[in-house]
């Protein structure tokens, strides 16, 4: 199991666990973390699982490929920053155990 910590906009932290090989989107959805919808089913097509990767983790997680679909979608998400990612595009690997993700203020 890999641990992910979701920090909501009001600062409250929620630690969840998810099987290796799934994504950060599923880590949120399977544990009813509010603020992540993932309407498209996790195929990088809707940007309703937008998260801000904690600065301490952005190097391990990496940035979206420039000009790729994720990059194209994030530009339309409200409040997108340089550490914005779509949770469905973050596969949970052992190196990301303890990953900290910040939820946007509003996803709806």
């Amino acid at each position: 199991m890999i641990k992910v910590i979701f920090v909501s906009a009001d600062g409250s932290r929620r630690s969840v666990e998810i099987d290796e090989g799934l994504t950060a989107r599923e880590a949120a959805l399977f544990n009813n973390v509010p603020g992540i919808d993932g309407d498209c089913g996790g195929v990088c097509a809707c940007a309703t699982c937008h998260v801000h990767v904690d600065h301490a983790w952005i190097n391990q997680v990496g940035l979206p490929e420039e000009g790729g679909m994720e990059d194209d979608l994030i530009q339309f998400a409200e409040g997108a920053t340089e550490t914005s990612r779509l949770a469905c595009q973050i596969p949970m690997i052992p190196a990301l155990d303890g990953l900290v993700l910040h939820l946007p203020k509003l996803q709806h």
């Binding site: 919808d37 089913g41 097509a45 339309f76 709806h108």
Partner: peptide
Amino acid sequence: PRHHLSFGFGIHRCMGNRLAE
């Protein structure tokens, strides 16, 4: 219930979907 096609997907996905809802 949110897994439907009415808003489309990708870069042209309905901009006003949250207002509709």
